[in-house]
């Protein structure tokens, strides 16, 4: 079960990174700030997923990273919502 959960979080991290890369490419081509904000959001979500793997699988006995995990998710979503509000009109 551990390995499956591992795979799930890594897949999530990979998906987020892929989105971030695609959005960054879009941003360099079009210079629409919305793409930059959402790119940062997906970078944050990737970090969030990687932290999850580290926290729960790699060093389960290590320091509790829960707050950092929540913070990374919060910052990601905040950046995305800011971008959506600021630059989608």
């Amino acid at each position: 079960m551990m390995t499956m959960a591992d795979a799930v979080f890594l897949l999530c991290a990979a998906t987020s990174l892929a989105c971030a890369v695609l959005l960054l490419r879009g941003y360099t081509q079009n210079r629409v700030p919305l793409l930059l904000w959402s790119c940062l959001c997906f970078v944050g979500l990737a970090v969030n997923n990687i932290l999850l793997v580290v926290d729960l699988m790699v060093i389960p006995k290590g320091p509790d990273l829960t707050t950092f995990r929540h913070l990374s998710a919060l910052v990601s979503l905040a950046l995305l919502v800011f971008g959506l509000i600021w630059d989608s009109e």
């Binding site: 829960t66 707050t67 929540h70 913070l71 998710a73 919060l74 979503l77 905040a78 995305l80 919502v81 959506l84 989608s88």
Partner: peptide, 24 residues
Amino acid sequence: MNDFLSGTVFGLCLVAGLFFLRFW
């Protein structure tokens, strides 16, 4: 604290979802 953070993320997810709904 963690619950508060998680709750805020919950709210932001809903808002982001609403934006995408409107884009759709």
